[in-house]
C-alpha cells in the first residue's frame, strides 16, 4: 500500500515538471524565430517594416504549401522527391493549355478552366503514379518518387522545349497572384484556407487520423482493418494535388510556364517540414510544423538577403540549420518522452 502511495506521489511531482519541460522545448522554434527576426532587425531596420513583413508572409505561403504537401506523405513514412518536377510539369502544362485555349478563341472563363484542369490533371496523374508504385508495387517511396522525378522533368522540358511558355492570361495572374481577398494577397489567402482545410482533414477525419496510425505502426493499421493501400494512394494524390495548386500560384506569379520552376523545391519542402518538427520516421507532424518550418527558412533567407550575406554563405547556413533543427527536435522528443 505504501508502495502504491509512493508511486502515486512520485507521479504527481513528476507531472508538472514534465509538462513544463515539454512546453519549454516545444517553444524552442517559435522563440528562435522571434530572436532571428529581432537579430536581423538590429542589423537592418527594414526587416521589421510592414512591407517586408508582408513580403515574408507572401514568400512563406508558397513554401508552406509545399511543406504541407510533403508533410502529408512524410506522415506515412513516405517522401515526395518528385514534388519539384511536378511543379515544373504542372506549370508548363497549365500554361500550354491556357495558351492553346486562348489561341482557339475561347472566353476567359474557359481559358482559366482549361489551365486549371490541365494543371490539376497532371498533378493528380503524378500522384497516382507515385501512390500506385509505392502502395501496390511496394517500391520504396524514395525510389518511386526518384523515378517520377526523372519522368516529370522529362515531360516538363519536352512539352516546353526547355523554354518558358508564354500566353498566361492576365486574369489568371490576377486571381492567383496580384488579387486579394479581405485585404490579404491571393497567395496568403489561398495558403491560409488550404492550411485550415488540411488541418481539419488531418485532425478531425478518419482519413487524417489513419495517416498518423500508418506512420506510427503500419502493421497495426493493417491489422486494424484500414485499407492501407488505398489510403496511401490517396495520400500521394493529395500531396501532388497540393503541389499542383502551388505550381499554379507560382505560374501566376511569374506569368509564364517555367520548365525549371520546381528546381530544388523537393528538398526545400522536405527541409521545411523537417525543420518544423515533422518526423521522417512517420506519424508526427501536421500543418503547424510545416508552416513553422517554412516560416523559419523564409525568415532566415529573407534576413540574410537584407543583411547582405553572401548567397554561397547562405547555402552553408541553411544546411547547418536543417541539421540543427532536427537535432533540437530529437532532443525535445527525448525530454518529453
Amino acid at each position: 500500500m505504501s508502495d502504491l502511495e509512493l508511486t502515486v506521489a512520485a507521479k504527481d511531482t513528476d507531472r508538472p515538471k514534465l509538462a513544463l519541460s515539454h512546453r519549454l522545448w516545444s517553444a524552442v522554434l517559435p522563440v528562435a524565430l522571434a530572436l532571428l527576426l529581432l537579430g536581423f532587425a538590429a542589423v537592418d531596420h527594414g526587416v521589421l517594416s510592414p512591407a517586408n513583413l508582408l513580403n515574408i508572409a507572401q514568400q512563406t505561403s508558397y513554401l508552406a504549401l509545399f511543406a504541407m504537401a510533403q508533410t502529408v506523405v512524410i506522415l506515412t513514412r513516405g517522401f515526395d522527391l518528385a514534388l519539384g518536377p511536378t511543379v515544373s510539369m504542372v506549370s508548363v502544362g497549365s500554361a500550354l493549355a491556357m495558351a492553346g485555349a486562348t489561341a482557339s478563341g475561347h472566353g476567359t472563363v474557359a481559358v482559366l478552366l482549361a489551365g486549371l484542369s490541365a494543371g490539376f490533371a497532371l498533378g493528380i496523374a503524378c500522384g497516382l503514379f507515385n501512390g500506385v508504385v509505392v502502395a501496390l508495387f511496394g517500391v520504396n517511396p524514395f525510389v518511386a518518387t526518384l523515378g517520377s522525378y526523372n519522368i516529370a522533368i522529362g515531360i516538363a522540358t519536352t512539352l516546353s522545349s526547355g523554354r518558358p511558355v508564354q500566353g498566361v492570361p492576365a486574369p489568371f495572374s490576377q486571381i492567383f497572384y496580384s488579387g486579394s481577398i479581405f485585404g490579404l494577397p491571393a497567395a496568403i489567402a489561398i495558403t491560409v484556407a488550404v492550411g485550415l482545410g488540411l488541418h481539419l482533414l488531418l485532425a478531425r477525419t478518419v482519413f487524417g487520423r489513419s495517416l498518423y496510425l500508418i506512420g506510427t505502426n503500419p502493421r497495426a493499421a493493417a491489422v486494424a482493418g484500414l485499407p492501407v493501400k488505398r489510403i496511401l494512394v490517396a495520400t500521394y494524390v493529395l500531396c501532388s494535388g497540393l503541389a499542383a495548386l502551388g505550381a499554379i500560384m507560382m505560374t501566376a506569379r511569374t506569368g509564364s510556364g517555367e520548365p525549371n520552376l520546381g528546381g530544388a523545391l523537393s528538398l526545400q519542402a522536405i527541409a521545411g517540414a523537417v525543420v518544423g518538427g515533422t518526423s521522417l520516421a512517420g506519424g508526427r507532424g501536421g500543418v503547424g510544423t510545416a508552416v513553422l518550418g517554412a516560416l523559419f527558412i523564409t525568415i532566415l533567407s529573407n534576413g540574410m538577403n537584407l543583411t547582405r550575406i553572401d548567397g554561397y554563405v547562405q547555402m552553408v547556413v541553411l544546411g547547418a540549420i536543417v541539421i540543427i533543427g532536427v537535432l533540437l527536435d530529437r532532443l525535445r522528443q527525448e525530454r518529453s518522452a
Binding site: 552553408v316 544546411g319 547547418a320 530529437r330
Partner: peptide, 16 residues
C-alpha cells in the same frame, strides 16, 4: 540525426 536530413544539410553546406 537521420542520415537523410544530415546529408541534405551537408549537401547544401558543401556546395556552398
Amino acid at each position: 540525426v537521420s542520415g537523410f536530413v544530415v546529408t541534405l544539410g551537408t549537401m547544401s553546406a558543401t556546395a556552398g
